[in-house]
Amino acid sequence: MDFRLTEDQRALRRGVRELLGRLFDREALRGAVDEPSLDRGLWRELGDAGFFALRLPEEEGGVGLGLPEAVLVFEEAGRVLLPGPLVATHLAAGAVPGAADGSVVVTSVDEDLVPWLDEADVVLGDVSGAVQVRSVDPLTPLHRVPGTGGATGAAEAALLTAAEQVGSAQATLDTAVSHARARSQFGQVIGGFQAVKHLCAGMLVRTELARAAVWAASVTGDAVEVAGAKLLADDAAVRNARDCLQVHGGMGFTWEADVHLHLKRAWVRAELRMPAARAEEAVAAGL
């Protein structure tokens, strides 16, 4: 047993972080917020880089990697708040022509919600009666469809969404810590105050716990373990964003700070791909 990343996995993570830093930096994020539309050029570049074809066999033009590697890649996507129906398109690679290379945008119905319906080329699931809602997340347009709240996604969809949540939780932790080390009040940096310090420590604990769960679930593929990982990752992303906002004080409440974008996306991801109630029931059923 060696739970640590292999050399190849570390290199992959490094590579993806560099790629996303280039393709979708903070300026691109804020630009997308001001004008929310799906960037086809970006989508193609993600396709070229193998984001969607990551787990397709090499003989089918894929990268031939597994779920653990996909989890690392989606963690990085969550960290920079990469927009678009990433999970649906990734899962459609190989099944829907054009999904693998990023020439086609695929979305799906999940929990009676459809993200990016107007921008997608292919929609999986029944969208009759779809009504646009005023999405809480400026970077995830949403439609509601009448239904019974059933899930269409496989465990893999829940796990990749959980990985994005872990990336987001790490990002808000990093942001909170760097703010706490820079911001001074009462003649010292606020990160020296235990009241602030303990918030940050709690954020780290949540992140590490959720990451261990997500990584392990990507190795075992066990459905109950995936449900548990989604539960903890949702918790880490949402609560870390809340604490990050708190550490930022008044600035955290502004549109200009990025923390609200993390919180809102975390809320969306928590509602999709196995929300808490279903995840808790799934884990309980395994007892």
């Binding site: 716990l209 959720a210 548990g228 884990v283």
Partner: peptide, 11 residues
């Protein structure tokens, strides 16, 4: 509640 605790101890 038991489901959530089980997820936590698994993690």
């Amino acid at each position: 509640r038991l489901g959530r605790l089980s997820a936590e101890f698994q993690a």
